[in-house]
Design a protein around this nucleic acid. Structure first.
Lengths: 198, 198
DNA sequence: GTCTATAACTCGATAGAC
DNA sequence: GTCTATCGAGTTATAGAC
Protein backbone atom coordinates (compact mmCIF):
# COMPACT_ATOMS: atom_id res chain seq x y z
CA UNK A 1 0.00 0.00 0.00
CA UNK A 2 1.22 3.46 -0.83
CA UNK A 3 0.10 6.11 1.58
CA UNK A 4 1.65 8.96 -0.32
CA UNK A 5 -1.22 9.04 -2.79
CA UNK A 6 -4.09 8.12 -0.50
CA UNK A 7 -7.24 10.16 -0.37
CA UNK A 8 -7.63 10.28 -4.13
CA UNK A 9 -9.69 8.12 -6.42
CA UNK A 10 -8.14 4.91 -7.69
CA UNK A 11 -7.56 6.17 -11.18
CA UNK A 12 -5.52 9.12 -9.95
CA UNK A 13 -3.55 6.94 -7.57
CA UNK A 14 -2.73 4.58 -10.42
CA UNK A 15 -1.52 7.46 -12.56
CA UNK A 16 0.58 8.84 -9.69
CA UNK A 17 2.31 5.55 -8.93
CA UNK A 18 2.76 4.64 -12.60
CA UNK A 19 4.38 8.02 -13.16
CA UNK A 20 6.82 7.52 -10.34
CA UNK A 21 7.71 4.00 -11.46
CA UNK A 22 8.21 5.21 -15.03
CA UNK A 23 10.59 7.89 -13.84
CA UNK A 24 12.73 5.37 -11.97
CA UNK A 25 12.55 2.34 -14.26
CA UNK A 26 11.03 3.36 -17.57
CA UNK A 27 7.89 2.01 -19.25
CA UNK A 28 9.19 -1.55 -19.59
CA UNK A 29 10.60 -1.57 -16.07
CA UNK A 30 7.36 -1.95 -14.11
CA UNK A 31 4.40 -4.32 -14.32
CA UNK A 32 0.72 -4.17 -13.46
CA UNK A 33 1.62 -6.28 -10.46
CA UNK A 34 4.12 -3.68 -9.18
CA UNK A 35 1.43 -1.08 -9.65
CA UNK A 36 -1.36 -3.10 -8.03
CA UNK A 37 0.68 -3.90 -4.92
CA UNK A 38 1.57 -0.27 -4.30
CA UNK A 39 -1.93 1.09 -4.87
CA UNK A 40 -3.67 -1.70 -3.00
CA UNK A 41 -5.88 -3.13 -5.74
CA UNK A 42 -5.69 -6.14 -8.05
CA UNK A 43 -4.32 -6.11 -11.56
CA UNK A 44 -7.83 -6.73 -12.88
CA UNK A 45 -8.94 -3.41 -11.41
CA UNK A 46 -6.22 -1.61 -13.28
CA UNK A 47 -7.63 -2.96 -16.53
CA UNK A 48 -11.00 -1.45 -15.63
CA UNK A 49 -9.46 2.04 -15.61
CA UNK A 50 -6.91 1.42 -18.37
CA UNK A 51 -7.81 -1.34 -20.84
CA UNK A 52 -4.19 -1.89 -21.87
CA UNK A 53 -0.79 -0.90 -20.53
CA UNK A 54 -0.42 1.29 -23.60
CA UNK A 55 -3.50 3.25 -22.55
CA UNK A 56 -2.01 3.74 -19.10
CA UNK A 57 1.35 4.79 -20.49
CA UNK A 58 -0.27 7.28 -22.85
CA UNK A 59 -2.40 8.82 -20.11
CA UNK A 60 0.56 9.09 -17.74
CA UNK A 61 2.62 10.95 -20.33
CA UNK A 62 -0.35 13.04 -21.44
CA UNK A 63 -1.15 14.19 -17.91
CA UNK A 64 2.50 15.04 -17.32
CA UNK A 65 2.73 17.05 -20.52
CA UNK A 66 -0.44 19.00 -19.78
CA UNK A 67 0.71 19.73 -16.23
CA UNK A 68 4.05 20.91 -17.53
CA UNK A 69 2.54 23.23 -20.12
CA UNK A 70 0.13 24.65 -17.53
CA UNK A 71 3.09 25.42 -15.29
CA UNK A 72 4.72 27.22 -18.20
CA UNK A 73 1.58 29.24 -18.79
CA UNK A 74 1.53 30.18 -15.11
CA UNK A 75 5.05 31.61 -15.13
CA UNK A 76 3.92 35.24 -15.52
CA UNK A 77 1.77 34.92 -12.41
CA UNK A 78 4.46 33.25 -10.30
CA UNK A 79 7.05 35.87 -11.18
CA UNK A 80 7.49 39.00 -9.10
CA UNK A 81 6.85 41.25 -12.05
CA UNK A 82 3.47 41.30 -13.76
CA UNK A 83 5.12 40.62 -17.09
CA UNK A 84 8.42 38.78 -16.56
CA UNK A 85 11.37 39.44 -18.80
CA UNK A 86 12.62 36.74 -21.19
CA UNK A 87 15.57 36.22 -18.88
CA UNK A 88 13.23 35.53 -15.98
CA UNK A 89 11.13 33.25 -18.16
CA UNK A 90 14.21 31.27 -19.14
CA UNK A 91 15.16 30.91 -15.50
CA UNK A 92 11.65 29.80 -14.58
CA UNK A 93 11.62 27.25 -17.38
CA UNK A 94 14.85 25.66 -16.22
CA UNK A 95 13.85 25.79 -12.56
CA UNK A 96 10.71 23.87 -13.47
CA UNK A 97 12.84 20.82 -14.24
CA UNK A 98 14.86 21.20 -11.08
CA UNK A 99 11.81 21.37 -8.84
CA UNK A 100 10.27 18.40 -10.64
CA UNK A 101 13.53 16.59 -9.97
CA UNK A 102 13.52 17.19 -6.25
CA UNK A 103 9.89 16.10 -6.02
CA UNK A 104 9.80 12.81 -7.82
CA UNK A 105 12.84 11.79 -9.78
CA UNK A 106 13.57 12.57 -13.37
CA UNK A 107 11.41 14.07 -16.05
CA UNK A 108 9.06 11.57 -17.67
CA UNK A 109 10.19 12.45 -21.14
CA UNK A 110 13.77 11.21 -20.91
CA UNK A 111 13.10 7.65 -19.75
CA UNK A 112 10.38 7.22 -22.37
CA UNK A 113 12.58 8.65 -25.11
CA UNK A 114 15.28 6.18 -24.07
CA UNK A 115 13.09 3.18 -24.92
CA UNK A 116 11.19 4.94 -27.68
CA UNK A 117 11.31 2.11 -30.23
CA UNK A 118 9.66 -0.36 -27.87
CA UNK A 119 6.78 1.93 -26.87
CA UNK A 120 3.19 1.59 -28.11
CA UNK A 121 2.45 4.17 -30.79
CA UNK A 122 0.11 6.31 -28.64
CA UNK A 123 2.84 6.69 -26.02
CA UNK A 124 5.35 7.61 -28.70
CA UNK A 125 3.00 10.31 -29.94
CA UNK A 126 2.73 11.88 -26.51
CA UNK A 127 6.50 11.90 -26.08
CA UNK A 128 7.05 13.68 -29.37
CA UNK A 129 4.35 16.18 -28.52
CA UNK A 130 6.06 17.02 -25.24
CA UNK A 131 9.27 17.84 -27.09
CA UNK A 132 7.47 19.95 -29.68
CA UNK A 133 5.53 22.02 -27.18
CA UNK A 134 8.28 22.51 -24.60
CA UNK A 135 10.93 23.36 -27.17
CA UNK A 136 8.55 25.68 -29.03
CA UNK A 137 7.73 27.61 -25.86
CA UNK A 138 11.38 28.01 -24.94
CA UNK A 139 12.44 28.97 -28.47
CA UNK A 140 9.95 31.83 -28.46
CA UNK A 141 11.33 33.09 -25.14
CA UNK A 142 14.92 32.84 -26.35
CA UNK A 143 14.12 34.70 -29.54
CA UNK A 144 12.36 37.49 -27.68
CA UNK A 145 15.23 37.75 -25.22
CA UNK A 146 17.82 38.04 -27.96
CA UNK A 147 15.88 40.72 -29.79
CA UNK A 148 15.52 42.61 -26.50
CA UNK A 149 19.28 42.41 -25.92
CA UNK A 150 18.87 40.38 -22.73
CA UNK A 151 20.10 37.03 -24.01
CA UNK A 152 23.01 36.22 -26.25
CA UNK A 153 23.56 33.16 -28.46
CA UNK A 154 24.37 32.28 -32.07
CA UNK A 155 22.17 30.51 -34.57
CA UNK A 156 18.45 29.68 -34.60
CA UNK A 157 16.62 29.99 -31.28
CA UNK A 158 14.98 26.61 -31.81
CA UNK A 159 18.34 24.85 -32.04
CA UNK A 160 19.45 26.40 -28.74
CA UNK A 161 16.10 25.63 -27.13
CA UNK A 162 16.47 21.98 -28.13
CA UNK A 163 20.00 21.88 -26.76
CA UNK A 164 18.84 23.30 -23.44
CA UNK A 165 15.97 20.84 -23.09
CA UNK A 166 18.38 18.04 -23.95
CA UNK A 167 20.77 19.26 -21.30
CA UNK A 168 18.31 19.36 -18.42
CA UNK A 169 16.90 15.97 -19.38
CA UNK A 170 20.34 14.46 -19.64
CA UNK A 171 21.24 16.02 -16.31
CA UNK A 172 18.22 14.43 -14.69
CA UNK A 173 19.24 11.01 -15.96
CA UNK A 174 22.80 11.50 -14.73
CA UNK A 175 21.49 12.73 -11.39
CA UNK A 176 19.46 9.56 -10.93
CA UNK A 177 22.26 7.23 -11.95
CA UNK A 178 24.87 8.93 -9.80
CA UNK A 179 22.73 9.77 -6.78
CA UNK A 180 23.66 13.41 -7.22
CA UNK A 181 20.71 15.76 -7.51
CA UNK A 182 22.99 18.78 -7.68
CA UNK A 183 23.80 18.06 -11.30
CA UNK A 184 20.53 19.52 -12.51
CA UNK A 185 21.10 22.77 -10.65
CA UNK A 186 24.69 22.98 -11.88
CA UNK A 187 23.56 22.57 -15.47
CA UNK A 188 20.90 25.24 -15.05
CA UNK A 189 23.36 27.66 -13.48
CA UNK A 190 25.89 27.23 -16.25
CA UNK A 191 23.31 27.55 -19.02
CA UNK A 192 21.70 30.64 -17.56
CA UNK A 193 25.00 32.43 -17.03
CA UNK A 194 26.17 31.48 -20.50
CA UNK A 195 23.08 32.86 -22.22
CA UNK A 196 23.02 36.06 -20.18
CA UNK A 197 24.01 39.04 -22.34
CA UNK A 198 25.42 40.79 -19.22
CA UNK B 1 19.49 -13.47 -39.24
CA UNK B 2 21.50 -10.30 -39.09
CA UNK B 3 24.07 -9.99 -41.84
CA UNK B 4 25.55 -6.77 -40.49
CA UNK B 5 27.53 -8.61 -37.86
CA UNK B 6 28.35 -11.77 -39.77
CA UNK B 7 31.87 -13.07 -40.03
CA UNK B 8 32.58 -12.68 -36.34
CA UNK B 9 32.35 -15.20 -33.56
CA UNK B 10 28.99 -15.70 -31.89
CA UNK B 11 29.94 -13.92 -28.70
CA UNK B 12 30.87 -10.75 -30.56
CA UNK B 13 27.74 -10.90 -32.67
CA UNK B 14 25.65 -11.22 -29.54
CA UNK B 15 27.35 -8.20 -28.01
CA UNK B 16 26.87 -6.20 -31.21
CA UNK B 17 23.16 -6.94 -31.54
CA UNK B 18 22.51 -6.54 -27.80
CA UNK B 19 24.20 -3.15 -27.93
CA UNK B 20 22.03 -1.99 -30.80
CA UNK B 21 18.85 -3.24 -29.16
CA UNK B 22 19.79 -1.55 -25.90
CA UNK B 23 20.29 1.73 -27.70
CA UNK B 24 16.86 1.58 -29.27
CA UNK B 25 14.81 -0.02 -26.49
CA UNK B 26 16.82 -0.04 -23.29
CA UNK B 27 17.87 -3.02 -21.18
CA UNK B 28 14.33 -4.09 -20.33
CA UNK B 29 13.14 -3.58 -23.88
CA UNK B 30 14.64 -6.64 -25.51
CA UNK B 31 14.62 -10.36 -24.70
CA UNK B 32 16.92 -13.31 -25.31
CA UNK B 33 14.46 -14.31 -27.98
CA UNK B 34 14.85 -10.99 -29.84
CA UNK B 35 18.57 -11.48 -29.64
CA UNK B 36 18.57 -15.14 -30.70
CA UNK B 37 16.40 -14.49 -33.76
CA UNK B 38 18.65 -11.72 -35.05
CA UNK B 39 21.91 -13.57 -34.46
CA UNK B 40 20.63 -16.90 -35.72
CA UNK B 41 21.11 -19.06 -32.64
CA UNK B 42 18.83 -20.35 -29.87
CA UNK B 43 18.33 -18.70 -26.53
CA UNK B 44 20.13 -21.60 -24.86
CA UNK B 45 23.28 -20.74 -26.78
CA UNK B 46 23.18 -17.21 -25.42
CA UNK B 47 23.30 -18.60 -21.91
CA UNK B 48 26.48 -20.48 -22.80
CA UNK B 49 28.26 -17.18 -23.53
CA UNK B 50 26.47 -15.11 -20.89
CA UNK B 51 25.12 -17.08 -17.91
CA UNK B 52 22.54 -14.42 -17.06
CA UNK B 53 21.10 -11.38 -18.79
CA UNK B 54 22.83 -9.26 -16.19
CA UNK B 55 26.17 -10.64 -17.33
CA UNK B 56 25.32 -9.75 -20.91
CA UNK B 57 24.18 -6.26 -19.97
CA UNK B 58 27.33 -5.64 -17.95
CA UNK B 59 29.62 -6.84 -20.74
CA UNK B 60 27.80 -4.73 -23.34
CA UNK B 61 28.19 -1.59 -21.27
CA UNK B 62 31.75 -2.47 -20.31
CA UNK B 63 32.85 -2.97 -23.91
CA UNK B 64 31.19 0.30 -24.90
CA UNK B 65 32.90 2.21 -22.11
CA UNK B 66 36.32 0.78 -22.93
CA UNK B 67 35.88 1.53 -26.62
CA UNK B 68 34.84 5.08 -25.80
CA UNK B 69 37.81 5.72 -23.53
CA UNK B 70 40.18 4.26 -26.12
CA UNK B 71 38.76 6.65 -28.68
CA UNK B 72 39.40 9.52 -26.25
CA UNK B 73 42.98 8.36 -25.75
CA UNK B 74 43.45 8.29 -29.53
CA UNK B 75 42.37 11.90 -30.02
CA UNK B 76 45.93 13.28 -30.14
CA UNK B 77 46.77 10.88 -32.95
CA UNK B 78 43.65 11.63 -34.96
CA UNK B 79 44.16 15.38 -34.75
CA UNK B 80 46.17 17.27 -37.36
CA UNK B 81 48.57 18.62 -34.78
CA UNK B 82 50.82 16.28 -32.85
CA UNK B 83 49.51 17.71 -29.59
CA UNK B 84 45.99 19.08 -30.08
CA UNK B 85 44.86 22.18 -28.22
CA UNK B 86 42.18 21.91 -25.52
CA UNK B 87 39.78 23.54 -27.96
CA UNK B 88 40.43 20.80 -30.49
CA UNK B 89 40.14 18.15 -27.81
CA UNK B 90 36.78 19.52 -26.74
CA UNK B 91 35.60 19.44 -30.34
CA UNK B 92 36.83 15.88 -30.78
CA UNK B 93 35.09 14.78 -27.59
CA UNK B 94 31.76 16.17 -28.71
CA UNK B 95 32.18 14.85 -32.26
CA UNK B 96 32.70 11.39 -30.82
CA UNK B 97 29.08 11.34 -29.72
CA UNK B 98 27.87 12.62 -33.04
CA UNK B 99 29.71 9.96 -35.02
CA UNK B 100 28.49 7.28 -32.63
CA UNK B 101 25.01 8.61 -33.25
CA UNK B 102 25.20 8.34 -37.01
CA UNK B 103 26.57 4.82 -36.77
CA UNK B 104 24.25 3.05 -34.41
CA UNK B 105 21.71 5.14 -32.60
CA UNK B 106 22.10 6.80 -29.26
CA UNK B 107 24.82 6.46 -26.67
CA UNK B 108 24.45 3.39 -24.47
CA UNK B 109 24.73 5.37 -21.29
CA UNK B 110 21.53 7.39 -21.58
CA UNK B 111 19.06 4.52 -22.08
CA UNK B 112 20.65 2.57 -19.22
CA UNK B 113 20.64 5.59 -16.93
CA UNK B 114 16.96 6.04 -17.72
CA UNK B 115 16.04 2.67 -16.22
CA UNK B 116 18.84 2.70 -13.65
CA UNK B 117 16.77 1.54 -10.69
CA UNK B 118 15.67 -1.64 -12.45
CA UNK B 119 19.14 -2.69 -13.62
CA UNK B 120 21.22 -5.50 -12.08
CA UNK B 121 23.92 -4.07 -9.83
CA UNK B 122 26.86 -4.96 -12.13
CA UNK B 123 25.22 -3.04 -14.97
CA UNK B 124 24.63 -0.07 -12.68
CA UNK B 125 28.29 -0.08 -11.75
CA UNK B 126 29.38 0.09 -15.38
CA UNK B 127 27.02 2.98 -16.08
CA UNK B 128 28.36 5.02 -13.18
CA UNK B 129 31.90 4.27 -14.23
CA UNK B 130 31.23 5.58 -17.74
CA UNK B 131 30.04 8.87 -16.30
CA UNK B 132 33.00 9.19 -13.98
CA UNK B 133 35.62 8.50 -16.64
CA UNK B 134 34.06 10.52 -19.47
CA UNK B 135 33.30 13.52 -17.28
CA UNK B 136 36.71 13.38 -15.67
CA UNK B 137 38.48 13.38 -19.03
CA UNK B 138 36.44 16.33 -20.28
CA UNK B 139 36.83 18.31 -17.07
CA UNK B 140 40.62 18.09 -17.37
CA UNK B 141 40.45 19.37 -20.93
CA UNK B 142 38.14 22.23 -19.98
CA UNK B 143 40.34 23.25 -17.09
CA UNK B 144 43.46 23.25 -19.24
CA UNK B 145 41.67 25.23 -21.94
CA UNK B 146 40.54 27.88 -19.50
CA UNK B 147 43.98 28.29 -17.99
CA UNK B 148 45.39 28.60 -21.51
CA UNK B 149 42.87 31.31 -22.33
CA UNK B 150 41.27 29.26 -25.10
CA UNK B 151 38.01 28.40 -23.38
CA UNK B 152 35.73 30.56 -21.26
CA UNK B 153 33.21 29.51 -18.60
CA UNK B 154 32.34 30.21 -14.99
CA UNK B 155 32.54 27.84 -12.05
CA UNK B 156 34.17 24.44 -11.61
CA UNK B 157 35.26 22.64 -14.79
CA UNK B 158 33.69 19.41 -13.58
CA UNK B 159 30.27 21.01 -13.34
CA UNK B 160 30.51 22.27 -16.92
CA UNK B 161 31.84 18.91 -18.11
CA UNK B 162 28.86 17.17 -16.54
CA UNK B 163 26.49 19.63 -18.15
CA UNK B 164 28.03 19.03 -21.57
CA UNK B 165 27.87 15.27 -21.26
CA UNK B 166 24.26 15.58 -20.15
CA UNK B 167 23.51 17.76 -23.15
CA UNK B 168 24.87 15.40 -25.80
CA UNK B 169 23.20 12.42 -24.17
CA UNK B 170 19.90 14.22 -23.94
CA UNK B 171 20.29 15.32 -27.55
CA UNK B 172 20.78 11.73 -28.64
CA UNK B 173 17.59 10.66 -26.89
CA UNK B 174 15.68 13.53 -28.47
CA UNK B 175 17.18 12.70 -31.85
CA UNK B 176 15.92 9.13 -31.62
CA UNK B 177 12.44 10.07 -30.46
CA UNK B 178 11.99 12.79 -33.05
CA UNK B 179 13.72 11.09 -35.99
CA UNK B 180 16.01 14.11 -36.24
CA UNK B 181 19.70 13.27 -36.12
CA UNK B 182 20.65 16.91 -36.64
CA UNK B 183 19.87 17.72 -33.02
CA UNK B 184 23.14 16.25 -31.82
CA UNK B 185 25.18 18.35 -34.22
CA UNK B 186 23.21 21.47 -33.35
CA UNK B 187 23.88 20.95 -29.66
CA UNK B 188 27.57 20.42 -30.30
CA UNK B 189 27.80 23.54 -32.44
CA UNK B 190 26.13 25.72 -29.85
CA UNK B 191 28.20 24.35 -26.96
CA UNK B 192 31.50 24.72 -28.79
CA UNK B 193 30.79 28.29 -29.87
CA UNK B 194 29.60 29.20 -26.38
CA UNK B 195 32.73 27.92 -24.68
CA UNK B 196 35.10 29.45 -27.21
CA UNK B 197 36.99 32.39 -25.69
CA UNK B 198 37.22 34.00 -29.21
C1' DG C 1 -15.65 -0.71 -9.26
C1' DT C 2 -13.39 -4.42 -7.37
C1' DC C 3 -12.83 -8.98 -6.83
C1' DT C 4 -11.30 -14.32 -7.94
C1' DA C 5 -9.80 -17.22 -11.26
C1' DT C 6 -7.61 -18.21 -15.23
C1' DA C 7 -6.28 -17.96 -20.04
C1' DA C 8 -2.52 -17.33 -23.22
C1' DC C 9 1.74 -16.01 -23.70
C1' DT C 10 6.67 -14.59 -22.81
C1' DC C 11 10.44 -14.37 -19.78
C1' DG C 12 15.17 -15.96 -18.12
C1' DA C 13 17.30 -20.08 -17.08
C1' DT C 14 18.55 -25.25 -16.89
C1' DA C 15 19.30 -30.29 -18.21
C1' DG C 16 21.23 -33.20 -21.19
C1' DA C 17 22.02 -35.08 -26.02
C1' DC C 18 25.16 -34.37 -29.81
C1' DG D 1 29.37 -24.69 -28.83
C1' DT D 2 24.91 -25.46 -30.23
C1' DC D 3 20.92 -27.85 -30.07
C1' DT D 4 15.89 -29.66 -28.23
C1' DA D 5 12.99 -29.74 -24.57
C1' DT D 6 11.27 -28.01 -20.58
C1' DC D 7 10.61 -25.65 -16.08
C1' DG D 8 8.76 -22.14 -13.07
C1' DA D 9 7.73 -17.69 -12.76
C1' DG D 10 6.54 -13.67 -14.86
C1' DT D 11 3.59 -10.91 -18.13
C1' DT D 12 -0.83 -8.59 -20.11
C1' DA D 13 -5.40 -9.40 -20.52
C1' DT D 14 -10.25 -11.50 -19.99
C1' DA D 15 -14.59 -13.74 -17.94
C1' DG D 16 -17.81 -13.51 -14.71
C1' DA D 17 -19.40 -13.15 -9.69
C1' DC D 18 -20.47 -9.66 -6.29
Amino acid sequence: MDTATDGSDTRTMLLDVAERLTRLRGYNGYSFRDLAERVGVTTASIHYHFPTKGDLGRDVMKRYRERFMQALAAIPASSKAATPTPREQLRAFLELFDSAMRQGGACLCAPLAAEYESLPAPVQDEVRRFYTEAEGWLAAVLDKGRRAGQLRFDGPALAVARSLVAMVEGAMLAAGANADEARVRQAITWAASTLDAR
